[in-house]
Computed example of a mutant assay.
Amino acid sequence: MSKKTAILGASPNPMRYAYLAAERLTIHDHPIVPIGIKQGEIFGEKILDLRERPEVKDLDTVTMYIGPKNQVEWEDYIISLLPKRIIFNPGSENPSLEKKAIEKGIKIDHACTLVMLRSKQY
């Protein structure tokens, strides 16, 4: 079953983990919605400008590639996307955002999206 996934911190730089996640999600037939401050396109999808707080419907997952310090101004926006879950990749853990998410019934995973995909746990 495909899971529409927003990649927060998306980047067109192939050396970034967010780029690798976009690649792997695409290979595994999960629709991606790249969102970040970098301009560009990845795997046929335009990177939406995080500063514009783009509306995204029917999200299954938000996978975080933004450090906790840089998440603060986006917390309410992230919650407003109403994903079923948020994956906090290593280094993106944020107790404040996690608490808000849990209060809204959003599942939290402390995991690596790449490992989850590789081990068929996505």
Rank of each mutant, 00 (worst) to 15 (best):
N13I: 05
A111N: 11
E23A: 09
L20D: 10
Y19R: 11
L50D: 11
L20G: 12
D49Q: 14
E52M: 11
E73M: 14
S11R: 13
M15N: 14
C112R: 01
I106V: 10
C112D: 05
E103A: 11
I86G: 01
R85W: 01
E55M: 11
L81M: 14
E45S: 12
P54I: 06
F43S: 02
E75K: 12
M15C: 05
I106T: 08
P95Q: 09
K84V: 02
G36D: 08
E55F: 07
L97P: 09
G44L: 03
R51H: 10
V33C: 14
T63W: 00
N13K: 13
V56L: 07
A10N: 11
T5Y: 03
R24L: 12
P14A: 11
N94A: 04
N89R: 05
I86T: 02
M116S: 04
N13G: 09
D76K: 13
L20E: 15
G91T: 08
I35V: 15
T26I: 07
L59D: 04
V62F: 01
F43A: 05
L20N: 14
Y65F: 15
A111I: 05
N70R: 09
A6W: 09
D109F: 11
D60A: 06
I79P: 02
T113E: 06
D109W: 09
K46F: 04
V33K: 12
K84R: 15
G44Y: 00
E103C: 01
V33Q: 12
K104T: 04
R16P: 08
Y77C: 08
R53I: 03
T113A: 03
T26K: 12
I47P: 06
I35T: 12
R24C: 03
G36V: 09
L25G: 09
D76P: 02
L97N: 07
L8C: 09
G44A: 00
A10F: 11
I106E: 02
L81K: 10
G40N: 12
N13S: 14
S92M: 08
M64K: 07
G36I: 10
I87R: 02
G9M: 06
L114N: 07
P68K: 05
